[in-house]
């Protein structure tokens, strides 16, 4: 991904080369999957796959919160929609045989699209809100989605399972699918936010009024950020549904959303690589602290507070690894959505 950083440096890797490399990277996950299943402890493989899913979730939230400067506290809601859409369809069709992998891909995309529609519905009304009000409104949307799930037993022929959850979903997702999804998600959001067109997202974050004065349809970009972010969250949800096989509505409440926000914030809002690292570390660490169960979340929340007090710009402070050109963090700038009113 060095092609972006070197734009004005006089040399560059051609795009087709990077595209080929990405395809090879995704394909390489396939044999790696085999090796890991053979060699790795089942518990750690599970943690590794959850890392992949959280990378997708945190990166897609980073597009909304870090790069576009909005503040969503309802990301788990989009994940829930994708999880239930893919999971329920998967259970209904339970594809097997030769077409099973293709069917999984199709259902993951369907789950993402359903979540994207929800993102559109959430994005449009929340446009009039900023900062903390937006945070609360999106939190409310997440809780409304939760309520809808626990009060719905089925939609037509498709089972939702209301408050007892959706169980016995055919398990199809493996390491390969989780990491193929993560690579596609991170690469897409990277390219979106560091391209000429995607600069508009960051312009909206920095100063909406100035962005509009520069001919940028700020409404369009804010909604687009919600739609794309929700799409990938939905895909991650679908991956989770077809990996675990069981969905409990409780696990998509705003505790999950806050967990994702913490990943974005600690990674450094706006820094894609920083958030990827934070998602990985914050998924792995709590697992390691299991023996410490009682104090685990206490430490976690203390770390969050201390981070805000000592280094509010996050781990990477908006910079990117693998990219020498600086990008500022959303929290260090004077965008009107983030700046203190007084």
């Amino acid at each position: 991904m060095k092609d972006d950083g070197s734009r004005s440096r006089g040399w560059s890797v051609p795009a087709w080369g990077v595209n080929c490399a990405l395809v090879v990277l995704v394909a390489g996950m396939w044999p790696l999957d085999w090796v890991l299943v053979e060699q790795m402890d089942e518990y750690y493989l599970r943690v590794l796959i959850l890392v992949g899913l959280n990378v997708i979730l945190a990166t897609s939230l980073n597009l909304i919160n870090g790069i576009t400067g909005q503040f969503s506290l309802g990301h788990a809601g989009f994940m829930a929609i994708g999880a239930y859409a893919t999971g329920s369809l998967m259970k209904y069709f339970s594809p097997t045989g030769a077409g099973a992998e293709a069917a999984l891909l199709a259902l993951l995309i369907v789950g993402g699209l359903v979540a994207a529609v929800a993102g559109l519905l959430v994005g449009i009304p929340t446009l009039r809100l900023r900062g903390d009000y937006l945070a609360i409104a999106t939190l409310g949307f997440g809780e409304i989605i939760y309520t809808l799930i626990v009060t719905t037993d089925r939609i037509g022929p498709f089972e939702i399972g209301s408050s007892s959850g959706l169980h016995a979903i055919p398990i199809r997702t493996s390491f390969f699918w989780a990491y193929a999804g993560a690579i596609v998600c991170v690469a897409s959001i990277w390219r979106l936010s560091y391209s000429a067109k995607g600069l508009a997202f960051r312009a909206v974050r920095e100063d909406e009024i100035a962005a509009a004065a520069m001919g940028i349809d700020t409404t369009y970009y804010k909604v687009l950020a919600f739609v794309i972010g929700a799409f990938f969250a939905g895909v991650a949800g679908g991956l989770y549904a077809t990996y675990d096989g069981n969905l409990a509505p409780e696990s998509f409440r705003f505790t999950k959303s806050i967990e994702l926000v913490v990943m974005v914030v600690l990674g450094g809002s706006g820094s894609i690589t920083g958030v990827v690292v934070a998602a990985a570390v914050l998924t792995y660490l709590p697992e390691q602290l299991r023996f410490f169960a009682e104090w685990r979340m206490v430490i976690y929340s203390l770390a969050l507070i201390l981070m805000m007090l000592l280094r509010p710009e996050g781990l990477l402070g908006g910079r990117e690894l693998l990219r020498w050109r600086r990008v500022a963090a959303a929290t260090t700038v004077g965008g009107d959505a983030v700046q203190s009113g007084r």
Partner: peptide, 14 residues
């Protein structure tokens, strides 16, 4: 009202 967290070049590119 510059995009203060973007580079000089990025400001113009917007």
């Amino acid at each position: 009202r510059l995009f203060s967290g973007l580079t000089v070049l990025e400001n113009v590119l917007v």
